[in-house]
Design a protein around this nucleic acid. Sequence first.
DNA 1: AAGTGGTCTAGACCACAGT
DNA 2: CTGTGGTCTAGACCACTTA
Lengths: 258, 258
Amino acid sequence: MAGAGAAGGAGGRAAGARYRRLATELREAIASGAYGAGGRLPSEEELAQQHGVSRGTVRQALAVLRANGLVTSRRGTRRVVLGTARTQSFFELLSFTRWARALGEVPGGRTIDISSGPANPLEAEQLGLEPGTQIHRVLRLRTLSRVPIMIERTIYPEHIGAVIAGLDPDAISHTEPLADQGVVFADAEHTVDLVYADDEDARLLGCDPGSPLMRERRRATDPAGTPLEWSDDRYLPGTVSFTVHNSAASTALSRRRG
Amino acid sequence: MAGAGAAGGAGGRAAGARYRRLATELREAIASGAYGAGGRLPSEEELAQQHGVSRGTVRQALAVLRANGLVTSRRGTRRVVLGTARTQSFFELLSFTRWARALGEVPGGRTIDISSGPANPLEAEQLGLEPGTQIHRVLRLRTLSRVPIMIERTIYPEHIGAVIAGLDPDAISHTEPLADQGVVFADAEHTVDLVYADDEDARLLGCDPGSPLMRERRRATDPAGTPLEWSDDRYLPGTVSFTVHNSAASTALSRRRG
DNA sequence: AAGTGGTCTAGACCACAGT
DNA sequence: CTGTGGTCTAGACCACTTA
């Protein structure tokens, strides 16, 4: 047992936790069709022996795949492969640039306006600060292969905004430099709804004022739960959709009025 | 240790797994402000002793709260309360009726059309069946406190549709009778985007043809991964929004083109 | 240096599916 | 009845945060 504990460190040295590497291996095996479409996975016991780990570690790995909707999980029968969908990393959801690259398209961005000043009550609440605290605001037009598809209004607390303000004005990605600076994004909450373009939206996106847009509001926090950014992104119709997988066991989705 | 195993059954007798009950207790404690807003939870060891369970069980319970975005989770420090948001059950996401009741509003529904016939290729794919297989189709207008807000087009495989077809035409809920019949919903995939009302949408919702609607397409499956229903729901603007919480550890959300 | 959560092991019994 | 996943326990060591 003691030796086992050591594996926690020894196994983790190479590339993160053992169960994460195992999850990646299994995901790749599934994607390669090793178990067939709709096929069955080996039992937990078999996987444990094959990979030289305990059943507990196998279960941790499988829990990841289940949360991603890749496999079923029920008592009595082996897990069944549901899909081979490539998993989108958490970071790809935060970074427009990373997302675009994963799509094989060329991300672009033009900074329309960048400023700093005291937070109004609404902004303060989004970032969990006291009204009047200094914040940074960025307004950018985002393009995919040169075509405008989204307008992004983001606010950052002082310490984050300082990094953003120091970037090349033509920098395509703002999120990546932050990560390089050691800023760790841990959680995010996304709310999707429908709004109508105001004059500024319309001018920048090249649509008519009052025309419908898909809005995604997002709040990202660090591991301590401290807000790192708050953003209001508006997409032209037909350019994007959002998909969520959920189950009785893990429900991260909710439907709200208005 | 053997006695411990017995707790798996003994503890579970009352109302499901021990860790689920513990998760519920903790959620209520948080909601009641027992730990304060932004306060810290007791350590895992303390919780284990207080509730007479092992640390592993405490961790399972906390994992549930974390997935719901209620608490943080990081090495070195105690968990911090992020919010007290009432958790929406998985079932509330599937059932318009349950959702409406939870909001304190009066759900209503008028069945516009119900029919059965062979699945076309598209429908067959949604339900994972062979084209030509018999399916059931239901078109319903949904209201909240008498006001129309959504138009719902759902298809069911034969064995499910048979139950639906046998219901009172004025039945408000279709999902609940299914649950009563022993149909178990285990997983769902929701895709949200923006579409324009066709003539039928417009006539039923009382909006203009071509006006924007928020669309949620949903596929629900049983524990074995077999599709139970596929639905295309279209909401009037301003009546609904969807919120997702995700983290680096569990990413069930994805953004897609078009 | 102490405290806390993250990871891993080993073993046990139970609930459920399938034969 | 047998196999498989679900739940729970007990114990260990590590990585990280905080004082």
